[in-house]
Amino acid sequence: MQTIASISSWYANNETLIQEILIYALLAFSIQVALRSGIFSLAGVGFYAIGSYAAGLLVKEQAWPTALAVIAAVLLCALLGWALSVLLVRLRDLYLALATVAFDLMVGVVALNWSSLTGGPLGTVGIPISVTTLTIFITVLGAAAMLALMQRGTIGRTLVAVREDEQLARSLSVNVRRYRELAFVISSMLGALAGAYHALLFTDIQATDAGFELIVLALTMVVIGGFGSWTGALLGAILLTWIPIELTSIGQWWDAVYGAMMIVVATFIPGGLISLVTIAGRASRGRARPSLLRRGSAAAAPPASSSGA
């Protein structure tokens, strides 16, 4: 009984932090799913803004049911995401990154100037709280499951092929364009989900919410956590939401420590922090191998040292 009480009091004290982590996790997934497919798109942040206005305004102004408003916001962003991917089909790498950053910031400028819809500089306020932490948690679980499935099997392998060598993928008759559009659309939908939940949980939207800072934060979460897997994005979302709060206790230089940690991880841990977990996991599995050998398992053949071609 006591543990339940202490858990619930811990939860009450940290509810906002947990909500923020969950919403940032969705945003980080949005960036990660694109990066993992070799698409340097940061458009998820723009769809975060569009999704938050769409869901917030539908609930507040049109009194739509929450679920319907969220679905509508996500579908709208899916459509816009597809359109954007078609427009930006020729761009790669840093150029694509800059184009999507410009798109994100343009969304903010439009929101600021479209006062009749968004309230302009005053923002959209007084949205009824209409989602629970549990709903968001379940959504994050669902999104994680979907990303995990996308990392496996044919789709996962194809996306890796598209990322590593577009020409090769094309020569294997992969429709590269279709796969890039798929990744783009999923990224847009995840960004929209994050924005919609943010609006419906924290009740107000400002045109400056999804600015350059949020782009930088989302990108940092994914790269620091590790963009190779959804688990890295989740780890990044947890750490980069939580660490700044912890670091404020060390005084006025916390930001500098945070910056230094970013440099160290970006420079020396290419796979992100999640790769340390993976390496640790592989090491423990490595220790298990001798026991297999003792049992004389045929499966424990020496690792094939193929010569490569």
């Binding site: 990066l35 620091i224 910056g259 230094a260």
Partner: peptide, 21 residues
């Protein structure tokens, strides 16, 4: 190359944060 570009971007963000601070 793509991963190097990404990592340099993030490292430069870290540098910006330190200098700004």
């Amino acid at each position: 190359k793509r991963q190097a570009e990404l990592s340099m971007l993030v490292a430069s963000i870290g540098g910006a944060i330190i200098i700004d601070q």
